[in-house]
């Protein structure tokens, strides 16, 4: 982290993690994580499996509870307070590895559920917004189908649209392409790249897609064994990795 960043006003950071620690039972998954994310920043988090990268972003919307340290979102610390948590969650969208669309609802109902029940948006308005985002992810014609009738790539694009319908300030992506068939990865990545290049959206993305990282990330974070090992611009990270662990990791995934 550069000096300039450190000295920037605290409100510039939409997410701050300060000495974050988490245990699963006796297993120490996150060790002293310090990470500040600026508004609009696009961060890619990578690392071997079990390194705690998913856990890290799941802590941000409190799907996982941390035991030590602080997470501050828009200047307010994340505690167990359920009201504050629900407010944070409406501003933080999340895409899961397995999409987690609601199979009993149509695509349209998947997209309008939260706007209607959380934001109290009128149905017609919510549907118009939903249609707009379905067009953006290029599947407006699937609105009346059920998730089970869509391909994996389409489902993940719906999931992204579903999050965007809540008009979040932050988007978390938890390995969004890992469960997809190879030929469907690019359609999802294209949507993510578009979203990133549009600007304004803070994105934290756990992924193994290094092409995506090179193309859009402002920063790449490499994690191993619950720690942040290295953090750099994509250029530096890929061309000039500092730590031995990073070098090994990169040599294993880039052929």
């Amino acid at each position: 982290m550069s000096e300039a960043n450190k000295n920037a006003a605290v409100n510039d950071y939409i997410i701050r993690m300060i000495n974050l620690n988490k245990w699963y039972g006796d297993f120490h998954v996150l060790k002293d994580i310090n990470l500040d994310v600026k508004q609009g920043e696009r961060i890619v988090i990578c690392g071997p499996s079990g390194s705690g990268k998913s856990t890290l972003i799941r802590c941000i919307n409190h799907l996982e509870e941390h035991q030590k340290g602080q997470i501050v979102i828009e200047g307010e610390e994340l505690t167990g307070d359920i009201k504050h948590l629900e407010k944070v969650r409406t501003n933080v969208g999340m895409c899961f590895q397995h999409f987690n669309l609601f199979p009993h609802l149509t695509i349209m109902d998947n997209l309008t559920l939260a706007p209607i029940w959380v934001r109290k948006t009128p149905k017609a308005e919510a549907e118009a917004t939903a249609m707009k985002y379905l067009e953006r992810v290029k599947i407006p014609d699937q609105a009346d189908k059920f998730p089970g009738q869509l391909s994996g790539g389409q489902q993940q694009r719906v999931a992204i649209a579903r999050s965007l319908c809540m008009n979040p300030k932050v988007m978390l992506f938890d390995e969004p392409t890992s469960a997809l068939d190879p030929e469907m990865i690019s359609e999802v990545l294209d949507v993510m790249v578009e979203l990133a290049e549009e600007g304004g959206m803070t994105m934290l993305c756990v992924t193994h897609e290094m092409g995506f990282a090179k193309q859009v990330a402002d920063r790449v974070i490499f994690m191993d064994a619950g720690q942040i090992i290295e953090e750099n611009t994509p250029d530096e990270f890929f061309n000039n990795p500092q730590s031995e662990r990073t070098q090994l990791f990169l040599s294993q995934i880039i052929h």
């Binding site: 919307n61 799907l63 359920i82 629900e86 407010k87 969650r89 409406t90 933080v92 969208g93 999340m94 899961f96 397995h98 987690n100 669309l101 609601f102 199979p103 009993h104 559920l113 939260a114 029940w117 959380v118 579903r162 999050s163 809540m166």
Partner: peptide
């Protein structure tokens, strides 16, 4: 699957809303 509940609450739905709108319709079926 746990992911259904996570997806529901991650969008800001309360416990009761995620139960009645997402989990129970599937579970009862």
């Amino acid at each position: 699957p746990k992911g259904q509940y996570e997806a529901a609450v991650a969008m800001g739905l309360t416990y009761w809303k995620s139960m009645f709108l997402v989990i129970l319709p599937q579970a009862l079926k």
